[in-house]
Amino acid sequence: MPDIVRITSDELVVEVSSLGAEMQSLQTTDGRDWLWNGDAAFWTGRSPILFPIVGKAPDNHIAVDGASYEMGQHGFARRAEWVLADASTTACRFELESTDATRKIYPFDFLLSLTHSLDGGKLVVTAEVENPDSCPMPFGLGFHPAFLWPLPGAEGKPHTIALDNGAEPLLTRLEDGLVTRDKLPSPFSKGELTLAHELFEADAMIFAEGAGEGLTYAAEGGPSLKFAFDNLPTLALWQKLGAPFLCVEPWHGTAAEAGGSAEMAKRPYTKILPAGEKARFAFSVEVIG
């Protein structure tokens, strides 16, 4: 059985599993839940980390310098057992290292760490990727947290996404799990989108660029979640159709392009990490109300 680590602040309580280093719950100290509970009737995920790819690969295979490797959707980190490297009352860090098994499907050495830390009513989730190998390493990294929709105490109220930058980013859709090259009109108006279940009839809404570095997910006259993103240029919003959750997903990378290459280095927004270097990615969410 996976180990569960609990961290607390004066306002929040968070539980994180060693399986996938995945957050299992996010509660305010008054007992309200904010994170999706993983009900298998809809979706067993809660807050998986996506590595070394975001989304799907053509025929579930990636290519590295022409060699083909089988790779499932969103990569393998979310289903791996991580090692607890450090923990305190308010923070915990899990690590995942390359193994003989991972090198058979992703031919690189790596060290991936994921830290959850609390400061009052704010949770910060930070991923660091290190390349100890002797060659550049291509990868994608994404966060996939699912929050309740409706938010606690906001049943029957309209819910919105408001971008900090007030932009109207163009929409990208998926075709058999791969991103299309077509750019569709933005569903945002002056940075604001009123959520409706029918928006997800065609799967996730992906905003490859232009959504900015922060947003607020809010119920009208009710509570809200304030997000900030660091080194995560792509935003996706997703709901399993009809399910009572909304995924707010900041990514560095996307699924491969429909009709495009399986090469890792040619996937949209792939990060190429030089030998011996590290890269950092983070999001924060603050509970308000």
Rank of each mutant, 00 (worst) to 15 (best):
I4M: 08
I4Y: 06
I7R: 03
T8E: 15
E11S: 09
L12E: 12
V14S: 06
V16N: 07
S18P: 05
G20A: 06
A21P: 12
E22C: 01
S25D: 14
T28Y: 11
T29K: 13
R32P: 12
D33M: 02
W34G: 08
F42P: 11
R46M: 14
P48N: 05
F51V: 05
V54L: 08
P58W: 08
D59A: 10
H61M: 02
I62H: 02
A63S: 14
A63M: 07
A63E: 15
G66P: 12
A67P: 06
Y69D: 00
E70Q: 04
M71R: 00
G72R: 03
H74I: 00
A87V: 08
T89M: 02
T89G: 07
T89W: 01
T90P: 00
T90W: 03
C92H: 00
R93Q: 13
F94C: 00
E97M: 03
S98N: 13
A101P: 07
R103P: 13
K104P: 11
Y106F: 14
P107E: 03
H116S: 04
H116K: 00
S117M: 09
D119Q: 03
G120T: 05
K122Q: 15
L123P: 12
E128A: 01
N131D: 10
N131R: 01
D133R: 04
S134I: 13
S134P: 07
P138W: 04
G142Y: 09
F143P: 11
G153Y: 07
E155A: 02
L163C: 14
L163V: 09
D164W: 01
D164C: 02
P169W: 04
P169F: 04
R173Y: 07
L174T: 09
E175L: 10
G177P: 08
V179K: 03
T180S: 12
R181F: 14
R181T: 15
F188A: 11
K190I: 12
K190S: 15
L199P: 12
A208F: 01
G212E: 14
E213N: 10
T216M: 08
Y217F: 15
A218T: 08
A218Y: 04
P223W: 06
K226T: 13
F229K: 07
D230A: 06
L237H: 11
G242Q: 10
V248K: 08
A258L: 12
A265D: 15
K266L: 15
R267F: 14
Y269S: 11
T270D: 12
P274C: 02
A275S: 14
E277G: 03
F283G: 10
V287H: 07
